[in-house]
């Protein structure tokens, strides 16, 4: 079997440098830098208050950092888009075309008052889809892809279980083929059995779609299964960063060692 050549000249999809954000005297995010390449999944792990969510919100443009830049290079040419210098309209457009954001609580990412189909159809409609039949067919297809029965297409998400809501949120975000998805504890509020199913689905979708993703989680098992790379955060700083299994199996930083050794074995 021929190996694909390694493209040394390839450019990152996202280039983050020197990102910092303080809330008063507390530095929630301090001098964080990394590159993310197309198809790569970066896990950001750390305990509550370590700055993971602040980092995610700075990356996605939801928060403006005090220092540093986030460059998004959609075409691989030129310097890329400076995410925080973009007008808000452009950033919103980005967030409903090439980017996506998956919230920990599906209620934050779904419209609870409209049907599953309308939820999935929103992104296509927001960027100009105007054929009801096509929008509905696409929504039905995505409902199936996230393993929800087709007869739930016209039901509101309030009637769904937590796991189904989270899968619906995925469909809503992935429907128009984003290239980069931000996920904040995507399996956080779910029962363990439901979590396993979602993880499997997520992994499958990420692989099939070739998505790049930044996934914030405090759960190292989730990080191991989903992420290619890990960044360990403590007090706003990235204390260790590397290949996922390397960071988890051969942690070097004292904090990472503590984190890994603190995981309960079932």
């Amino acid at each position: 079997m021929n190996a694909a050549p390694l493209m040394e000249a390839e450019r990152p999809l996202l280039a983050v440098s020197g990102l910092g954000k303080a809330f008063g005297a507390r530095r929630a995010c301090d001098d964080v830098s990394f590159d993310l390449y197309a198809g790569e999944v970066l896990g950001v792990v750390g305990e509550s208050g370590s700055g993971k969510t602040t980092l995610l919100r700075c990356l996605s443009g939801d928060l403006t950092p005090d220092t540093g830049t986030v460059l998004y290079g959609p075409n691989g040419n030129g310097p890329g888009l400076d995410v925080h210098a973009l007008p808000e309209g452009r950033r919103r457009l980005l967030m409903r075309t090439e980017w996506g954001y998956v919230h920990q609580n599906p209620r934050d990412g779904l419209r609870m008052g409209v049907s599953a189909g309308a939820n999935i159809g929103e992104r296509p409609m927001a960027v100009g889809a105007r054929h009801y039949g096509h929008i509905r067919a696409q929504a039905a297809d995505w409902l199936a892809r996230v393993e929800i029965e087709n007869d739930r297409l016209d039901d509101r998400p309030v009637t769904f279980s937590g796991g189904m809501q989270q899968r619906l949120q995925l469909a809503r975000v992935l429907v128009n083929g984003p290239r980069l998805v931000f996920m904040d504890e995507p399996t956080g509020g779910l029962d363990v059995s439901v979590q396993a199913r979602l993880l499997d689905l997520l992994r499958d979708l990420v692989t099939r779609l070739g998505l790049a993703a930044v996934i914030v989680t405090h759960d190292l098992a989730v990080a191991r299964l989903l992420a290619h790379r890990l960044m360990v955060m403590k007090d706003g700083r990235a204390v260790e960063h590397g290949l996922t299994d390397q960071v988890l199996d051969d942690p070097h930083h004292p904090y990472t060692q503590l984190l890994v050794s603190s995981v309960l074995q079932a």
């Binding site: 309209g89 919103r92 409903r96 419209r111 409209v114 189909g117 309308a118 159809g121 929103e122 992104r123 409609m125 927001a126 960027v127 105007r130 009801y132 929008i135 509905r136």
Partner: peptide, 10 residues
Amino acid sequence: DYGVMHVKLY
């Protein structure tokens, strides 16, 4: 940013 209008019609 008017995507929601069509959500309602849908």
